[in-house]
Computed example of a mutant assay.
Amino acid sequence: MSNPISYTTEEIANLLKVSKLTVYDLIKKGELPSYRVGKQMRVDAEDLESYKQRAKGVARASKPIEAYPLLPAASPILTSGARPIIITGQDISLDILARHIERNVSGVRPLRAYSGSMDSLIAMYRGESDIVSTHLLDGDSGEYNLPYIRRVLVSSSYVVVNLLTRWAGMFVQKGNPLNLNSWADLSQPGLKIVNREKGSGARVLLDEQLRLHSIQASELTGYDSEASNHIGVASKVASGEVNVGVGIEKAASIVSNVDFIPLIQERYDLVLMKKPENLHWIEAIIAILQSEDFQNELLAIGGYDLSLTGQLLYES
């Protein structure tokens, strides 16, 4: 007997821990069969399970990526000799970059993996990813990313290029009833928080700010409660389940009934593993980042500072 359950695109995105844009892209490519019920797109549970099994097949055929189970299903490009390159991270800008790579860079097929900054760097060290995104604050130096990259990618050859800059800070309930305006305000008694998973940039940002402001994590109710993405954190704040969470401005613009307190501009960088066989697509990707077409697409979304986009920050 067939499974009668079906899902909306939003439910699919939550189940797979991807953006709704990625779900729509899978539907558009025919990799995830769908149908309309009124104005709403739906996907049957059986079709979702079939997609996941195909995706697992692609993952087994390439390098093992234990932290990233969500890879696109097989396509004709993969079977025509194009080499898959793994791009890790959760920001929608990475989905846009992947589409530009697919259209403009020959010989490669971008595959998206959704994982936090630290896990992504560790995967790169293990040889399990080719391009990782990272937004990790070193509280002592005030520097983003490079201190962590140097520590993790020991004896590796890589380039670091900026993708974008964006505001990070706190999600608070509409109207900010508890008057939370700084990191120091997290010491306010009785606060309930929702956290991100270990290794994520938002989790590192929170931990560094707690350390710098001499606030014990054990003092925060809900510190061990985790959401897997920025929208999940903002949604829990908006629902009143918690008082505060750490995340990015973009999520606050998507979730209603939540205010955003901007506290730090974080540099969101890409790390590209530098090998002789990678040099042609590294140059092509940097050209994409610097292109007017790519930047205009990000500007249309809003909320990003592109003043450093495409700039080479470090090369080992």
Score class of each variant (00 low, 15 high):
239 S>E: 12
204 V>W: 02
232 G>I: 07
236 K>V: 02
238 A>E: 08
242 V>F: 10
185 D>T: 08
231 I>Q: 10
200 S>D: 12
212 L>V: 09
206 L>R: 02
187 S>N: 12
200 S>M: 10
215 I>T: 08
226 E>P: 00
243 N>W: 11
248 I>T: 09
222 G>D: 08
242 V>W: 09
263 L>F: 09
217 A>G: 14
201 G>N: 02
269 D>N: 14
188 Q>S: 14
261 I>L: 07
216 Q>T: 06
186 L>Y: 06
190 G>H: 12
201 G>K: 00
180 L>R: 07
266 E>M: 12
214 S>K: 15
221 T>K: 14
255 V>W: 07
278 N>D: 08
214 S>G: 01
267 R>I: 06
223 Y>V: 01
215 I>Q: 04
258 V>W: 01
241 E>I: 06
213 H>S: 08
219 E>H: 10
261 I>A: 06
197 E>D: 07
219 E>Y: 05
262 P>Q: 07
275 K>V: 03
208 E>P: 03
199 G>L: 08
239 S>T: 13
235 S>A: 14
280 H>W: 13
232 G>L: 08
241 E>L: 07
174 K>Q: 15
244 V>N: 04
189 P>K: 12
198 K>M: 11
277 E>N: 15
272 L>Y: 03
246 V>H: 04
252 A>Y: 09
211 R>F: 05
236 K>T: 00
216 Q>V: 05
194 V>K: 06
198 K>P: 03
270 L>D: 00
254 I>M: 15
210 L>N: 07
226 E>S: 08
197 E>N: 07
242 V>Q: 06
270 L>S: 04
210 L>G: 06
264 I>M: 09
239 S>D: 13
186 L>R: 02
195 N>M: 01
247 G>C: 12
192 K>A: 08
226 E>M: 14
220 L>N: 06
249 E>P: 00
246 V>Q: 06
271 V>L: 01
181 N>Y: 04
227 A>G: 09
268 Y>M: 07
226 E>K: 13
206 L>V: 04
247 G>W: 09
176 N>L: 10
174 K>G: 05
183 W>N: 05
262 P>V: 10
208 E>Y: 03
252 A>Q: 06
235 S>P: 03
209 Q>S: 12
234 A>I: 08
241 E>R: 01
225 S>C: 07
217 A>V: 05
229 N>L: 03
229 N>G: 09
228 S>Q: 03
216 Q>K: 00
213 H>Y: 11
